[in-house]
Design a protein around this nucleic acid. Structure first.
Lengths: 199, 199
DNA sequence: CGCTCGCTTGATATAGCTCAAAAGCTGTGG
DNA sequence: CCACAGCTTTTGAGCTATATCAAGCGAGCG
């Protein structure tokens, strides 16, 4: 990860910072202004209601850039899901990053709006299916996919309880659609069946 | 609406187009490239599942700009909710609108992600409350707010059925929190009560 | 070996959905 | 102006998917 690190779309070298599993990267209400590229690891972006209900709005995986905001203030929390390394870019005063950031912002906007369809209109099986297919996509369509996040995280992302997540995964396993290799590695054995379930 | 039309953030004059209630502005899959500023009226942005389930991801009201997309392709449908006039801007080839569009994209991204919290983690009363307060905000915090959209639209925005929307509104009316002046105009008589219900 | 913590499984409760019907609007034609 | 048709909305009754509450399980660790 030294000087031979993956090429960045951004010009200057950036300091690298490390986060342990569960540690906070930034909090809602904090001043924003920099943004982060994930060198390794995974990040959850979320919001809380005052009674503790949590909605994870996005997971970001290695290679992705996140943390830029509308009005210089963070509207969400960001935490490392596992040991994570970030390359942080702090634009110089007056520097205009619009050209680089717009495509990302549009992409994340589409992602959030597509996710809205899942959470607003699909049942628990469809939600889990959509989630697994998305993770598979983003990990290069390997048969085996890694789930760095806990069941609770998955539930809070999909608007389900941890029990429902667990039950649906068990049912898909029992039907032979999924095979688990430990808790955090899933093999999608019948991608077509999964795809059909998520219509 | 002639030469004395409201000032636009964009430089050149644009053709104006009109849409009747229910008419399509663009469809998912169509080529994108231009974007639209609402002169008057209101617009719904939505997605469909193949069995007809619909999720409205955003309502846009007079003054707002929408329709720019990540990869030159529309990912959503846009329809006029009522008689609507749009000023359409088609950037010249090579023209870079990033500076103007990034703040909008970020704003809509935050909106979508906040809406995700509502749909993913709040109950029917909280959802309706959040919706009404949002509409009130965006109409300048008047006591009377206009709901250009149908109950079905509200349901498809909040991830509820039309019956649930209707029941919740009736309950809020019976409690004296809301007062209806016809179907499409609501007065929020106890904003505090509403705010508390939405946590 | 026995804790702890995250996950799974089971039993029951309930919010919101579905199906059905009645009640309001809106527009049209006589 | 009234009457009727075709909507949308409201209301009601019963059902079901998912939440809640509670117990058991298993991998990792001191």
């Amino acid at each position: 990860m030294g000087s031979g690190a993956p090429a960045s779309v951004f010009s200057r070298p950036h300091p690298m910072s490390f986060f342990t599993a569960g540690s906070e990267i930034y909090a809602q209400g904090e001043k924003a202004g920099s943004f982060h590229q994930i060198e390794f690891g995974a990040v959850r972006i979320y919001r809380l209601l005052c009674d503790g209900r949590r909605q994870i709005t996005a997971f970001h995986l290695a290679g992705e850039t996140f943390g830029f905001e509308a009005d210089r203030t963070h509207h969400f929390f960001a935490e490392a899901i596992m040991a994570t390394g970030l390359r942080t870019h702090c634009p110089a005063a007056g520097e205009d990053m619009s050209r680089e950031l717009l495509p990302l912002a549009l992409r994340y906007m589409v992602r959030a709006q597509e996710h809205l369809l899942v959470v607003g209109r699909q049942n628990s099986v469809e939600r889990i299916g959509a989630f697994l297919m998305d993770m598979s996509d983003r990990q290069g369509d390997l048969a085996q996919i890694e789930l760095p996040m806990s069941r609770q995280d998955i539930g809070d992302y999909l608007g389900l309880t941890i029990e429902t997540v667990s039950r649906v995964l068990s049912r898909l396993r029992d039907k032979g659609i999924l095979k688990f290799h430990g808790l955090r590695v899933v093999e999608i054995r019948k991608p077509d069946a999964l795809r059909i379930m998520c219509e």
